[in-house]
Structure formats: structure tokens, C-alpha cells
Design a protein around this nucleic acid. Structure first.
Lengths: 343, 343
DNA sequence: CTGAAAGCGCTTACAG
DNA sequence: CTGAAAGCGCTTACAG
């Protein structure tokens, strides 16, 4: 604290009266250090306020103590939650998190192309976007582990929800209330078409209808880029285009449903009396808007992904019989935006 | 690409037929390398697919190429936006960003205590929380630059909005519509009492009232931890406690206003006919809820903070006559949640 | 303009 | 259980 430069391992070793090697081993919980010696070293280290230089350690040992978290749209609720969950367990395990923001395919390609050569991280968790086979090979060549969160990608460990199942819960709720004429606002990221949630949630819509013998009406379906305002416009569109309005709307996400709610209100429809609305996510504001939804715990998914990282790095035991991936649970949260159709 | 291990500078030097020193200098655009030699080295480097090891470079040169971003509540809109803006300009400048999540005072203390010794970063940007003088000295001792975003802290470069001004814009709007009986839902983070936005935004409330000769009614004011649901409860509280309901509500943030809107609707009050509501932020959902608000561009504040980092590290010129900090602009966005009080 | 050498702060066989 | 030594992949005075 009285020097301009941070204390080094050498300072600690000197202070504790041991060699560099012993100090290093004591600090790293390695075998072959007597309890008393270790205690002495630890004491010296904390007395000197010592923390290893990550660069030196990395250089000498070949491991970085860092993991990259790669996310699109970090300003969006889903991704913030995810990062928060990842950070929580990884920082607990003393890893540093390198945050990379990549939106479109070009960003992604460039990021993945550069990362391996940089040897900056032990692992990378890619949130909600696909990694190609070629890119995967590059990453693995240099020993970086990969984990996918918010979607399943290629063949590495992943955590995600079952989108078909989530969609089915929503649709079943609607159909069991008696709805038959159901609109769908599908979320579809232009930067990653067909990925990740869209196909499953759409399929759930189609099969629910099919099971009822209802043939889907294309006038009742719109793709939206996950922007609430655009979802509102899509809803207006449907109202304008469809001869008869739907009795219910199934949105791929709560943020889309918020836009739907807005348009409905402005058009003078009452929810749920005239039209029911359901979303997916259980966004923090869903409660305030009385939105019925299928809840998922995104923060917990992030934490699970982080645990997968730890396992991949040998820092944690895989749970016995654990699958290569974890499918997070979802459940229906009934609120006041859904009701039987008016008879 | 055919070897298991990445090529090193030594490989490049050998391939180009020069010494390590020359290879290093050529790659770093240093003075004292002939054009032809440099070209040859560059060629070898690209032929071998060489990228410097950041760790080795940093160990040798003493600079990290990383900056820490320290945020509370990263899952919240404001912080996500901020991080997004910071990331955008810093990654552009080839810095890596290390993300640290600290919620309460204890977290903060520990983080700041450990960071210096770690020599992990060239700079740290602290988002929306205070750094004490002692902590600041520690950081500066080891040469880490500090920038504050989303609030002004101690004496380093900062970017924030003028909270008093933002509050005044909101209050002026209300009072100029004719409101006199105005409730306030104040945002107050229990983890950092009195910081950062609360005091200024509250002061604006008080002076606006004072200017009108209205004495503040304590029954009309509540502190809330920025949770929308709790804001709704606080609103209910006010409605229950105050004899006569307010004609308008001033919320310190849009997310608080959302909760207010919810309660008002459930209690059967129409907005704005019965009660007007105004927030601060221009949260993405404010538009959908027709909320009048005072807008700030948080992403741009993040970007500005990042530019301050670059300046502090000598990687960018300070703008001529630039102040030590930047005060981001705010402006009123009138939507349908405010109107004159019923006469 | 170029090279030999020291050193950045650690870890890790290798001996004892 | 402990220490002396080599080495991780670079950068940077210091000489030429």
C-alpha cells in the first residue's frame, strides 16, 4: 500500500519466508504444502493485499481465468437477465467475464474468427445465436469450451427452454378457454432468421390449431422483429386485414404482447372481454399489465449455463447422469388478459 | 492452421528471416524498421495466421487493453442501455470489456478493494454508484483511470444528466397544465441511499411547488426501490392515505410510472382525465403506455463515458475546451398521460 | 535500421 | 513438503 506498484508473488514469498514455488502452490491450493506454510503464505498475501497478475498466470499456465459472453441486443430484458445470471455464478467461481456484443451475422463471423487466435478466454458462452460447424472447430482447436444459452446450437452443452412446449402451454390455455380464431404475432430476428425461438413457438401454434381441426388463417399471422411498437403495428394490420377480428392473440413474447395490448386498447377493444392476449416470458412488466403468459426464468438459465461452463472446465462435477444440456422449465401464469371468447 | 498450437512471434521472425525484436517492431508499427523488412514480416505474419498473445504483450508492456465496467442491477433497462453504449465504442477502439456486477455497498467495497491489486484493467467505469475518496486513491495509485457514468462521483470525469433539470421539466409541464396537488413517487435504491438520481429529482419537486407557493404534502410522497410493482403499491398507499387524491403524479422514472398507471387503472381512475402521470427516462415501453416523460438517451451516455475512457488513456484527443464531464441532454416527450386537471 | 539480452510475474516439472 | 531453474510469448532499452 506504500508502493507505487502492486505487490508481486515474490513480495509475498519474501514476506512469508518461503520460495516462489511454495508461495505459488500455497495460493493455488496445490498439493504438497504443509498446512502451516500455506497459512503463513495466505496471511502474507492478504497482509500485502496481493492478487495474482492474471496475465502472468495465463502466460505461465496457459489458462486465462476468463470467459467470453457473447450476446446480441444486450439492452434487451432477456439478454440482460441472461448475462446477470451468468455473471453471478461465474464471478462466484472467480472467473472474469469478457463481454462481447454482436448483433448480426457479420459481427458474429468476425468475432468468432478473431477470438481463437487471441487466446483470451477459457470458454465462451454464446447467447441465443448459432455457431457454425467450421467456427466451432476453430474454437475447439485452441481448447476453448463452448456453451450455448438461450438456444441449442451445434453439439455443445446448452441451456434453453423447450419452445414448442412453451408455445403449447400458451395455445392450450387459449383453446381450452374455447378460442378458435387465434392470431399469432411471431418474433423473428432479422439478424438470425429462423432462430432461436421462432420455429418452435410457431409450430406449437400450428399443431394446436391442427389438433382442433382449424385451418390456420394467414391473415391472422404476422412476423415481427421483437420490437413492441412493431408488434402493435402488426396487430393493427391484422385487425385491418382480417374480415373478422380474432378472439385471441398469441404473442411469441411478452414484449410483443405489450404492443398488441396497446393497439387493442386504442382500437377500442377490451381485453379480455373482446379479445384475449397471451405472451411468453413473464417479463417484469407483465404483471403490471395483467398479462397472462408462459413464464421462464432467464436469470436461472444464465446461471445454469455458467454451471455448464464450470463443468466443461473441470471446475465442477457434472451432475450424475446429467444430459449434455439443460431444458429449463416453463409454466403458465394466468392473469387478467385471457378469458373465454364472447359467446 | 495445421498445428495444434498457435504460431508465435518467434515463428514469424524465423519465417521472415529477422530477429524477434525486428519482428515485434514491424508488427507494432514502431520506428526504425525499413519498409521492405516490415513488409516481409507482415507477410510472414499473415501467412502464418499470427496474432499476438495479448497476455504476453501485456506482461511485457504493462498495459492491459481492458477496461472494467462496474454496474449494479445489470438486468435493468437503464444499465443494459448503458453497458451497450459503452461496449459499442470501446470495442470499436479494440478494448475488451470486463463486466462486474455489484449490487450493494458491500459488493462495491470488496470489488474496489481487489481490483487495484489485480492489475487487470487500464480503466474502470463505474455506473451509477459512488466511489469514495479512499477507494479512488487506491485505484489511482496503480494508474487505473476512473470514469463515472450515470452519476457524478468524486472528482473524475463523468457523464450524467442534470437531475434537477430533468425533474424541473417534468414538474413544469405539470404545473403549467394547472396542477397544484401533485404526488411524487421517488426512486430510491436501498443499496445506495441518496444516490444518484434521487436528490436532484426530489429537489425539483420541492422547488417547483415552492415557486407556486404550495406547501408539500407529505401524504403525497413515497420512496420506492425502483421496482414497478412497489411503485404501484406506493400509489395505492397514497390514494388510501391522502384525503383527496392528487390531480397528478410525478414519478422519478418511467418504470415507477408504469406501476402508478397500473394502480390508477385498477382503482378506476382514468389517465389523464382524472389523474395525470409523468415519468423520466423514455423507457422503450413508455410509448406503448402513452406515458408523458422526460427523455434521456442512456446508450449515448454510455458511449460518451467510453469516449472519456479513451481520452483518459490518451487514445483520443479531448475536445477543445471540453469540461471534465458531460451533461447529457434531456427533453420533454408529451404523450397522452398528462392533461389539465378537471375543473 | 537491426539484433542479443533482460525482464514482465507467474507456474511447473525436476530434484531433493 | 520445499526450492532452484526453466519457460510462457512478448517488449524494450541497450548496443551496434
Amino acid at each position: 500500500m506504500n508502493s507505487q506498484t502492486a505487490p508481486s508473488l515474490a513480495d509475498v514469498a519474501r514476506h512469508a519466508g518461503v520460495s516462489l514455488s511454495t508461495a505459488s502452490r500455497a495460493l493455488n491450493d496445490a498439493y504438497g504444502v504443509s498446512a502451516v506454510t500455506r497459512a503463513r503464505v495466505l496471511e502474507s498475501a492478504s497482509a500485502l493485499d496481493f492478487v495474482v497478475s492474471p496475465d502472468a498466470r495465463r502466460l505461465a499456465s496457459g489458462t486465462t481465468g476468463r470467459v467470453a459472453v457473447v450476446v446480441p441486443h444486450i439492452e434487451r430484458w432477456f439478454f440482460g437477465q441472461m448475462v446477470s445470471g451468468i455473471e453471478r455464478v461465474l464471478s462466484e467461481a472467480d472467473f472474469d467475464i469478457l463481454l462481447y456484443h454482436v448483433d448480426d451475422a457479420e459481427d458474429r463471423r468476425e468475432f468468432l474468427a478473431r477470438l481463437p487466435a487471441r487466446r483470451k478466454v477459457d470458454a465462451v458462452v454464446v447467447v441465443a445465436f448459432p455457431v457454425g460447424e467450421a467456427e466451432r472447430e476453430r474454437l475447439e482447436l485452441i481448447g476453448a469450451k463452448i456453451i450455448a444459452a438461450g438456444g441449442q446450437s451445434a453439439s455443445y452443452p446448452y441451456v434453453c427452454i423447450d419452445d414448442v412446449n412453451a408455445g403449447r402451454l400458451a395455445m392450450d390455455h387459449l383453446t381450452s378457454l374455447g378460442h378458435r380464431r387465434i392470431a399469432m404475432i411471431a418474433g423473428s430476428d432479422p439478424d438470425q432468421p429462423g432462430w432461436p425461438a421462432t420455429p418452435g413457438r410457431s409450430r406449437a401454434y400450428e399443431s394446436a390449431l391442427e389438433a382442433l381441426g382449424v385451418s390456420p388463417d394467414p391473415a391472422l399471422v404476422r412476423d415481427v422483429d421483437w420490437n413492441p411498437v412493431n408488434a402493435g403495428k402488426a396487430m393493427a394490420d391484422i385487425l385491418d386485414a382480417a374480415g373478422e377480428p380474432p378472439t385471441a392473440v398469441y404473442a411469441h413474447g411478452d414484449e410483443l404482447a405489450f404492443g398488441v395490448l396497446h393497439t387493442l386498447r386504442h382500437r377500442g377493444y377490451r381485453v379480455p372481454e373482446d379479445i384475449s392476449v397471451i405472451g411468453i416470458d413473464n417479463h417484469p412488466l407483465a404483471e403490471l399489465l395483467d398479462l397472462t403468459t408462459v413464464a421462464q426464468d432467464v436469470g436461472e438459465q444464465g446461471a445454469a449455463a455458467a454451471r455448464l461452463v464450470l463443468q466443461a472446465l473441470g471446475r465442477a462435477q457434472a451432475e450424475p447422469g446429467a444430459a449434455p444440456g439443460v431444458v429449463a422449465p416453463v409454466h403458465l401464469v394466468e392473469r387478467a388478459s385471457t378469458a373465454p371468447p364472447r359467446s
